Amino acid sequence: KELVLALYDYQEKSPREVTMKKGDILTLLNSTNKDWWKVEVNGRQGAVPAAYVKKL
């Protein structure tokens, strides 16, 4: 499985998103959308802005 690093804090704004903190390591589930990537963090799945994460 592919991992990404959170470059910034992000507070979810809808139920389809997830909150992450700078430095979090997230499991990347889907990166086909260039703006929003689906990730899993702390057992929750949701979208985060692609510009806020970097593939490891």
Rank of each mutant, 00 (worst) to 15 (best):
G43L: 04
Y10W: 10
Q45R: 11
E40C: 11
N33L: 08
N42A: 11
D35Y: 15
T32A: 12
P15R: 09
Y10E: 01
E12V: 07
R44N: 06
D35P: 02
E12M: 13
D9K: 02
V53L: 15
D9I: 02
M20G: 00
K13D: 07
S31H: 09
L5C: 12
A50L: 02
W36L: 04
L5W: 07
L5E: 12
A47D: 15
S31Q: 12
W36Q: 03
P15K: 10
L3T: 09
Q11N: 14
E40K: 06
E17A: 06
V18M: 11
D9G: 05
N30L: 08
T27H: 10
N30F: 06
V4L: 12
E2A: 12
K21Y: 09
D9Y: 04
L3I: 08
K55S: 09
G46N: 01
L29T: 06
V53T: 03
K1T: 13
L56S: 03
K13C: 13
E40M: 08
K54E: 14
K21E: 06
L29I: 14
P49G: 02
D9H: 05
W37M: 04
V53S: 00
A47N: 15
K22T: 07
S31D: 15
V53Y: 01
G43Q: 06
V41L: 15
L26S: 01
Q11D: 14
K34G: 11
I25N: 02
I25G: 00
D9N: 08
S14M: 06
K55Q: 10
Y10H: 03
K22Y: 05
L56F: 10
A47V: 15
E12D: 05
L56K: 03
P15W: 10
V53G: 01
N33I: 06
K34Y: 08
K1F: 13
V39M: 00
S14N: 13
A51Q: 12
R16M: 14
M20H: 00
L5R: 09
W37A: 05
K55V: 13
D35L: 13
P49D: 03
I25E: 03
A6L: 04
R16H: 15
R44Q: 08
N30M: 08
E40G: 05
T27K: 11
R44L: 07
V18I: 14
W36S: 03
N33T: 08
T27G: 06
K54F: 08
